[in-house]
């Protein structure tokens, strides 16, 4: 069945992130001067006092912690059949935070303590797009 939810459309500076996911690799950028990782992709280090353009893509662990979330009890369009679903912010072990959905876990507050360990699940939603979802770490 065709996937009808919103899909990301890559831009030049984000292309490697989405290409990496398609290969089942989580790729984010790291500043080669201050050594910090960052997200979302852009061609310069966003950290205050650095702002270097000497940045490189790296494949990271795909492990992180549940930073915060909501359990959505409303869903529009194709999301309606998914409610309740978890919209979460994961803090990667490398530092940056990103939005995701939690999968393979009950959408109940008791099952979702902040800081619980998570790992990435590569969700191949179409032939072209893979979304980074997360589940409780095994």
């Amino acid at each position: 069945m065709a996937y009808t939810k919103a899909l990301p459309q890559a831009t030049p500076e984000t292309q490697e992130f989405w290409d990496g996911l398609k290969r089942h690799e989580l790729r984010i950028q790291r500043c080669q001067d201050c050594n910090q990782f960052y997200f979302f992709p852009r061609p310069f280090c966003p950290h205050a006092g650095c702002r270097s353009t000497n940045v490189e893509w790296e494949t990271v662990s795909g492990k992180g912690k549940l930073h915060t979330y909501v359990i959505s009890h409303r869903g529009f369009g194709p999301w309606a059949e998914d409610v309740p679903y978890v919209i979460a912010v994961v803090e990667l072990d490398e530092g940056p935070r990103m939005m995701t959905n939690l999968v393979n876990v009950e959408p109940e507050p008791e099952k979702l303590p902040p800081d619980m360990a998570l790992e990435i699940v590569y969700d191949d939603v179409t032939d072209e797009v893979t979304l980074p979802k997360f589940q409780p770490a095994s």
Binding site: Y85, I87, N101
Partner: peptide, 11 residues
């Protein structure tokens, strides 16, 4: 927003 939030069902 279209790349990094909308695909996760924010509404």
């Amino acid at each position: 927003a279209g790349q990094f939030e909308s695909p996760f069902g924010v509404w």
